[in-house]
């Protein structure tokens, strides 16, 4: 079994990212879309943390350890905030349209 490298993590992040995007692209339920967003952010977080773990300088010192994790924390916090706001919006949307189908929110179509 070959050693696990940064690229493995990055690949996983990519998979998560693409899954999130596909989730956004295929779900008609607004909350499903929100889940897609969470997946995308998660994919990004995996990358951050992986970079923090793996990135070294020429002397072998860890150069991104704290920054990566701090960014990941920020992303988590922002994701939470985003989720709160998004859910509030979804609820409002539901109140107004009696549905959570994003296809009905097409007032802005050209």
């Amino acid at each position: 079994m070959s050693p696990i490298t940064l690229n493995h993590y990055l690949a996983l992040g990519a998979v998560l990212f693409v899954c999130g995007v596909l989730c956004m692209a295929t779900k008609r339920n607004a909350i499903g879309v929100l889940m897609g967003v969470e997946l995308v952010l998660n994919g990004a977080n995996v990358n951050f943390v992986a970079f923090a773990y793996y990135l070294r300088d020429a002397q072998g010192n860890s150069v991104f350890l704290v920054e990566g994790q701090v960014f990941a924390l920020f992303v988590i916090v922002l994701a939470a905030a985003e989720a709160a706001v998004a859910l509030a919006i979804v609820l409002n949307f539901y109140n107004n349209h009696l549905t959570v189908d994003v296809d009905t929110a097409e007032e802005l179509k050209g």
Binding site: V21, M24, A25, T26, K27, R28, V33, V102, D103, A105, E106, E107, L108, K109, G110
Partner: peptide
């Protein structure tokens, strides 16, 4: 033509982004 791109469907926008 451009207008027709603005479908108003969230999913299409995401696809476009991709």
């Amino acid at each position: 033509w451009f207008r027709s791109l603005q479908t108003g469907f969230l999913r299409s926008y995401v696809l476009f982004l991709v």
